[in-house]
Amino acid sequence: MNALSPPGISAAPLLRGENLSRSFGGGGWFGRGRPILAVRGVDLHLARGEALGVVGESGCGKSTLGRLLLNLLPPTSGKVVFEGEALDALPAGKLRALRRRMQMVFQDPYGSLDPRRSVGAQIADGLLIHRMADATGAAARVAELLRQTGLEPAHAMRLPHEFSGGQRQRIAIARALATRPDFIVADEPVSALDVSIQAQIVNLLADLRSELGLALLFISHDLHVVRHLCDRVMVMYLGRVVEQGSAAAIFAAPAHPYTRALLEATPSMRHPVTAAPLPGEVPSVANPPSGCPFRTRCPAAESRCAEAMPPLEAHPADASRQLACWRAAELA
């Protein structure tokens, strides 16, 4: 698997997710609740300093996966191993201490900051919780972080509502960076932002990654952004990984029918979409189709696709890539 890591990135994984699954609900009122399988059997690994993009449409389990990796949600099965330690086996105190090293940036810059506390206080939270600084030390670090994320130290006194969406996202990034983490989950950090601001944040994340050697799990539905920022990509559909591999290879020649459809459907200024759009919509996670999850919309589906779930296997022509499709060999 480590063959996947591009050169220059250390091979020992910082973080590993093994066979992660998470379901919600089940039982429920009136006895008609079916468990929702938000994430199903996902394996992944992330090296120090590596950026992994997770793409897919709404409800495919991207956010749930991000929260599982940080143990903000416990997995229903499978485990997350951070530097050799399984997070679910850690006592609560140790887990909290470990949180210093892994952080999260959320999608909605309006909802992720406490509206009643100054941004400086919120950026300093991590430092004080982990006793990494006293009050004066924290103030100095907050000023440094604000500068690093393109804001001004004087902004520390203000409340979140005095900032624009892009500025708030910078504040959220500053908060995540405060404890000098090794790993950040960024859950659609630019989706709520305007194009010009989006570019600022993407560039900021790219800079921070190279300066600080951060490992990044970048969740997005915008393939163009992922391509700019990530070394590797994981494409998800209905809670499963359907294709993964190096970003460059996947964007140049998507192999899975869903990845292809996704790339074709993404509007582009330079090449207008010509292919017929994919029919239908993502089926409900509560009631996924039998066999291949994509078969209800797949232009290449055959009868065998309904029978069993295709396993995630090496790409026939490129061993560094993997995809889950019965017809991988024919379609490649």
């Binding site: 929260r67 952080q103 999608q107 909802g111 992720s112 406490d114 509206p115 939270d125 404890t179």
Partner: peptide, 26 residues
């Protein structure tokens, strides 16, 4: 369920701190 409460959890804050500093004022 709001993101800024999850953010406190992600920062490693204990329940006491989350209850008093984040939830109560809000």
């Amino acid at each position: 369920a709001l993101d800024y409460v999850t953010a406190q959890q992600a920062l490693g804050a204990g329940p006491g701190r989350i209850l008093l500093r984040t939830l109560l004022p809000n």
